[in-house]
Amino acid sequence: MPIEVEIITGRTIDQGKTVEEKLTEEYFKAVSYCELNEEDFRSLGLKEGDRVKIKTEFGEVVVFAKVGSVPKGVVFIPIGPYANQITSDDTDGTGMPLFKGVKGVVERTEENVKSIKEILGVE
């Protein structure tokens, strides 16, 4: 069963370390996952290494799922191309997209996580 969540994005140390090496496996690993609350993780029937599909009104993306220190109902994704498939492009007149706090749904999926080039649509 899909669950409703609020999606937040942010920096992580691994994302930072690899930010100037975006075409590497390390960067891919640093940005292609999300963190869920342990309870949400279990209720989606997930285990380490599983994938989830996250959908918002702005798009959808498949990422790896991990347990993280987020409250129930909140999903964290490191900033980057995966997060940006689903973040809001509405800036409310400020120029700033709503990178934190977009509502969406998360479900377990068998689909694969796309490569960065596939995400960008250049391959």
């Binding site: 975006k22 702005f58 498939q85 973040t87 809001s88 997209p97 960008l120």
Partner: peptide, 12 residues
Amino acid sequence: SDPAAHFPRKAV
């Protein structure tokens, strides 16, 4: 800078 990585999909 790398907007292709850091901008929302529609902007990219």
